[in-house]
Design a protein around this nucleic acid. Structure first.
Lengths: 186, 186
DNA sequence: GTCTATAGTAAGATAGAC
DNA sequence: GTCTATCTTACTATAGAC
């Protein structure tokens, strides 16, 4: 069977999606190319038809994942953003990293990777920051909200007891809500 | 040469220190037992005289590192805590993970490890939370401060440009300071 | 307690058939 | 574009000498 002209593009995009989920759940360094491709239903040999190296894959994953996150926080309406934040700080997000934000799952590994991957990360994070800043009209508050969301989910994922998780998530939710609603604070 | 009765204990403690620094910088999954022991000036064979497995080492590192962090935030005086927070959100802390807090460096890998390691992590995090709560007299604010500090340092380590890093760190510093100082906010 | 040596497995990456 | 097969290296862990 022949492949359509844009099959390669489509296959690469599908690979970035499925391996992205796998890597968010299991970690990038902890997973081999073999396991990555098996999760996508292919063998490791095919990997290098789409990426020159494993680190090139990480760069593609980060770009793809952050674009999704930006789309989730794209509404300029306060009510939509409150819903997005509630979803971010939910038990479901903590329990399912494979379907969630890439930042709490992969930021530590991004910090240890090459400059080009970090550049993609920075572009995405500045895009997210600008969107939140549009809501709260204050750069300091925008960075604070981002750091809280990311930090809270990352810490919550390491807490085994439900009670500690819930206390952390609701506590941070309370403070983030205040930042989003009270426009007087600086 | 013979070894003193408590040489084993001392050697293990030293191993937890030096491998802790190595793991915070390079990641846990990304480093082999060989490299870990080489960083400590030993060979890999000696590793299993002190730990039954690599994951037992992670557990020991987390316990050791969080005890240190708790000591750094142990003062009940507000001025001391402001200094500790400034150090946490400093360029130096972002640039030198090996000498810094284990949480932004390792939380994602803790979330993927065994229950006993997560239990040690939870104990340490609740201890830290209690100390901060003593300062701000509010559990929600304590969790919020912790999440912000951890999230900010982790994100900052992935940002290649100095300007973006500085904006993030000073922005979060401003919001954390407000939480620490303004006792009226809930 | 630390060493060398090694077992056994899995890693990242490449070559060539289809 | 994907497969199987393979090269080389590195991994976790163990055994036995000192």
């Amino acid at each position: 069977m022949r492949y359509s002209p844009d099959h390669k593009q489509g296959a690469r995009a599908r690979l970035v999606d499925t391996t992205g989920a796998h890597v968010k759940k299991n970690g990038f360094a902890a997973t081999g190319v073999d396991g990555l491709m098996a999760a996508a239903g292919l063998t490791s040999g095919a990997f290098y038809s789409h990426f020159r190296s494993k680190s090139e894959l990480l760069e593609a994953i980060i770009g793809n994942e952050l674009q999704r996150s930006i789309a989730l926080f794209s509404s300029p309406v306060l009510e939509d953003s409150l819903l997005a934040v509630e979803g971010y700080l939910s038990q479901a997000h903590v329990d399912h990293p494979e379907a969630g934000c890439a930042v709490p799952a992969l930021a530590a590994e991004i910090a240890r990777s090459g400059l080009s991957t970090q550049q993609v990360f920075e572009d995405g994070m500045l895009g997210l920051k600008d969107q939140i800043q549009n809501l709260v009209q204050d750069e300091s508050k925008a960075w604070s909200i981002m750091a809280q969301l990311v930090g809270a989910v990352m810490i919550a994922r390491g807490l085994p007891s439900e009670s500690a998780r819930a206390a952390l998530l609701t506590g941070v939710m309370q403070q983030v809500k205040r930042l989003l609603q009270d426009t007087s604070l600086t």
